[in-house]
Protein backbone atom coordinates (compact mmCIF):
# COMPACT_ATOMS: atom_id res chain seq x y z
CA UNK A 1 0.00 0.00 0.00
CA UNK A 2 1.58 3.29 -1.05
CA UNK A 3 1.17 6.72 0.49
CA UNK A 4 -1.48 7.78 -2.00
CA UNK A 5 -3.61 4.77 -1.22
CA UNK A 6 -3.27 5.35 2.50
CA UNK A 7 -4.29 8.98 2.07
CA UNK A 8 -7.27 7.98 -0.03
CA UNK A 9 -8.49 5.60 2.68
CA UNK A 10 -7.97 8.23 5.39
CA UNK A 11 -9.96 10.81 3.41
CA UNK A 12 -12.79 8.36 2.81
CA UNK A 13 -13.05 7.47 6.49
CA UNK A 14 -12.84 11.08 7.62
CA UNK A 15 -15.48 12.08 5.10
CA UNK A 16 -17.79 9.43 6.54
CA UNK A 17 -17.36 10.90 10.03
CA UNK A 18 -17.44 14.55 9.02
CA UNK A 19 -19.49 14.63 5.81
CA UNK A 20 -19.69 18.43 5.78
CA UNK A 21 -15.91 18.81 5.46
CA UNK A 22 -13.37 18.28 2.68
CA UNK A 23 -10.64 16.11 4.25
CA UNK A 24 -8.62 16.06 1.01
CA UNK A 25 -7.96 19.76 1.51
CA UNK A 26 -6.18 19.09 4.81
CA UNK A 27 -2.67 20.48 4.87
CA UNK A 28 0.06 18.02 5.82
CA UNK A 29 0.83 19.67 9.17
CA UNK A 30 -2.68 20.66 10.22
CA UNK A 31 -4.22 19.08 13.30
CA UNK A 32 -6.86 16.79 11.83
CA UNK A 33 -9.26 16.86 14.78
CA UNK A 34 -9.13 20.61 15.22
CA UNK A 35 -9.43 21.43 11.53
CA UNK A 36 -12.35 19.10 10.90
CA UNK A 37 -13.90 19.68 14.37
CA UNK A 38 -14.00 16.01 15.31
CA UNK A 39 -14.79 15.14 18.92
CA UNK A 40 -13.36 12.31 21.00
CA UNK A 41 -16.25 10.00 20.21
CA UNK A 42 -15.76 10.40 16.46
CA UNK A 43 -12.00 10.10 16.85
CA UNK A 44 -12.53 6.69 18.39
CA UNK A 45 -14.89 5.76 15.53
CA UNK A 46 -12.18 6.82 13.09
CA UNK A 47 -9.56 4.70 14.82
CA UNK A 48 -11.96 1.74 14.85
CA UNK A 49 -12.58 2.27 11.12
CA UNK A 50 -8.81 2.42 10.40
CA UNK A 51 -8.51 -0.83 12.29
CA UNK A 52 -11.25 -2.47 10.24
CA UNK A 53 -10.12 -1.14 6.86
CA UNK A 54 -6.36 -1.43 7.18
CA UNK A 55 -6.02 -4.01 9.91
CA UNK A 56 -3.76 -1.82 12.05
CA UNK A 57 -4.19 -1.55 15.79
CA UNK A 58 -3.33 1.88 17.19
CA UNK A 59 -2.76 1.66 20.95
CA UNK A 60 -4.02 4.53 23.10
CA UNK A 61 -0.54 5.78 23.95
CA UNK A 62 0.07 6.40 20.23
CA UNK A 63 -2.94 8.71 19.79
CA UNK A 64 -0.62 11.69 20.25
CA UNK A 65 1.52 10.53 17.31
CA UNK A 66 -1.23 10.75 14.71
CA UNK A 67 -2.48 14.31 15.08
CA UNK A 68 -1.62 15.53 11.59
CA UNK A 69 -2.13 13.99 8.15
CA UNK A 70 1.64 13.74 7.64
CA UNK A 71 2.13 11.99 10.97
CA UNK A 72 -0.82 9.65 10.46
CA UNK A 73 0.28 8.60 6.96
CA UNK A 74 3.82 7.85 8.08
CA UNK A 75 2.54 6.04 11.19
CA UNK A 76 0.33 3.80 9.04
CA UNK A 77 3.09 3.20 6.48
CA UNK A 78 5.43 2.04 9.26
CA UNK A 79 2.75 -0.23 10.73
CA UNK A 80 1.87 -1.72 7.34
CA UNK A 81 5.48 -2.71 6.59
Amino acid sequence: MNEQEIKKTIFQLLKRIAPDTEPSELKADENIRETLAIDSFDTLQFIVALNEQLGIDIPEEDYGKINTLEALVSYISRKKK
Binding site: S40, F41, V48, E60
Partner: peptide, 17 residues
Protein backbone atom coordinates in the same frame (compact mmCIF):
# COMPACT_ATOMS: atom_id res chain seq x y z
CA UNK B 1 -8.94 3.65 32.18
CA UNK B 2 -5.57 3.50 30.43
CA UNK B 3 -4.83 0.16 32.02
CA UNK B 4 -8.23 -1.25 31.14
CA UNK B 5 -8.02 0.01 27.56
CA UNK B 6 -4.51 -1.34 27.00
CA UNK B 7 -5.95 -4.85 27.33
CA UNK B 8 -8.79 -4.19 24.92
CA UNK B 9 -9.18 -4.16 21.17
CA UNK B 10 -9.83 -0.78 19.55
CA UNK B 11 -13.53 -1.58 19.33
CA UNK B 12 -13.91 -2.32 23.03
CA UNK B 13 -12.09 0.74 24.35
CA UNK B 14 -13.84 3.06 26.75
CA UNK B 15 -13.86 6.84 26.63
CA UNK B 16 -13.38 8.90 29.80
CA UNK B 17 -16.94 10.22 29.43
Amino acid sequence: LKEVNSKRTVKERLLPV
